[in-house]
Nucleic acid binder design. Structure first.
Lengths: 113, 113
DNA sequence: TCCTATACCTTACATTACAATGTATATCGC
DNA sequence: GCGATATACATTGTAATGTAAGGTATAGGA
């Protein structure tokens, strides 16, 4: 078992990650879990118990919009798409992330020998 | 008032930021607040009500060690230094951060037009 | 006298990941 | 048929944590 990323970092990255994934088009929970793993080269593995509440909150807050769909095999899926409000939040989150990342990079690189 | 960074991101970055700052030598709470602001070019402003509990937890967990010191003016300060355990945690946090950052960069850059 | 800066601390509140558990269908090997 | 795995969604209890607000104290400038 790979040691998971510390939870505060999961919490910080979940919203921008999900919103960003949805800029590529509609997706659904189970697929997003696999996309996160793929995007990170296997480094990140989210639990479904974490992701589904995240999706519900994002929908509640109007950042994404969901619709139920039945597949040919009879499975039900809830597809989500990014809303305009979600695009704005993604831009804000990216900006925040960049500011924090830059500060960390500075403190990692300089300030000491 | 500048809009603050979302709180999950503060939570995710506080430990690596503090530990990283302390690689430059001893420091104390009030100074760390100013260093964070300086390191980020004014983008990040932490509240003291957030930082002091963070320092207490880091000390409790053995990542940093504190000592009280009186200045010439009669002010009391608690200086903290990085422990070996703290150095190990910083390395781990940096590794985690890099993995998440890389995944975010990938999802921001690709996956969509 | 009043305000700002320095320097520490705590509490009430809301939020959130994690682990565990539950539901249901499809597919594959045997 | 049968059991295991994958797909696909969901909820609950617990612990942890930032925020906002408030508190204590000293020093210096207007």
């Amino acid at each position: 078992m790979k040691k998971p990323v510390y939870k505060e970092l999961v919490a910080a990255s979940s919203r921008p990650m999900v919103l960003s994934i949805l800029t590529g088009g509609e997706s659904y929970g189970y697929e997003i879990l696999k996309q996160v793993k793929l995007l990170s080269g296997g480094e990140l593995e989210w639990s479904d118990g974490m992701l589904y509440p995240v999706l519900h909150r994002l929908e509640r807050d109007g950042f994404i919009a969901g619709r139920w769909q039945l597949t040919d095999e009879g499975r039900r899926r809830k597809y989500y798409r990014l809303t305009d409000r979600g695009k704005g939040q993604l831009a804000s989150d990216r900006s925040n992330w960049s500011a924090v990342h830059a500060a960390l990079q500075t403190s990692w690189g300089g300030g000491h020998v």
